[in-house]
Amino acid sequence: MSYFFQLVVSGIVVGSIYALSALGFVLIYKSSRVLNIAHGQIIAAGAFITYALTVWVGIPIYLSFGMSMIATFFLAMSVERIFLRRLIGEPIISVIMVTIGLMSILDGLIYLTPFGTENFSFPPYLPTTPITIGGVSISWTQLVGVIITFSMIAGFSWFFKKSTIGISMRAVSDDQMASMAIGISVPRVFGLAWAMAGLSAAAAGGIIGNITGLNFDTLHAFGIVVFPVVILGGLDSIQGAVVAGIIMGLIQQFASGYLDGNWGLNGTGEVMPYIILLIILLFKPHGLFGIHEIERV
């Protein structure tokens, strides 16, 4: 039974990171209807900036964590400004393909640095002995990661509920014409949505980097696992992203905990989200919390 609870705990840890990664993705989709395929690369960039600032420059980790969030904030904002601003009004298919191109460009830029091929891990700055309660253990980095994740998600929800910018972003996602009419600058909101997405991606990257170590393939994979998460949660729902992230984390941990090694299966945790994705697309395409606006054409 403690094995089960251990899986639940690690599922919640992984799932909360999924939720944070998916959050940025949903932000961009919600405001501008763009699927950001390059999200994983921004996550990776955030993690690498955090590492470089902490280990190579020698800044305390909490400070460099914040600085990397600021850096990706501006990175994502400039990506929107340079590449996507001039594609407003173009068919959505070419906008998505631009993000595919961006993914390739960021891949190339990351491979230029040592992070592309080598593995790094953060020096320990928290107690290394895990906390064990009744046979279920959780490491300090995981615990701190989960706490940071949930506080960030809470912060984002507050931001969207209460702040003026957040409300104007929700207005744009609701109706662009109407929000233009009441004086909201829609391109600025698009830029801000990207910037916020970059910020949350860097946070996710920093936490993943601390828990699993820095490996470009792992970090990049988080950007793709985001797709099953957001489809399960509904593409345009922030609460959906959070709930679905945790569900997906649990499913993944249970799959690799109970299926691997039986019937010659291996690495099922990696593939399970995609199988679920295809099933959801066939039977409940708007996800758990998504708006039922899908046309049957």
Binding site: F83, R86, L87, S94, M97, V98, I100, G101, L102, M103, S104, I105, L106, D107, G108, L109, Y111, L112, G116, T117
Partner: peptide, 19 residues
């Protein structure tokens, strides 16, 4: 360098052509 320049150039080509 090849592993870095290859995706970089492909990405640039995709983006520039689309733009």
């Amino acid at each position: 360098l090849t592993t870095a320049l290859r995706p970089l150039s492909f990405g640039l080509v995709i983006v520039l052509f689309l733009m």
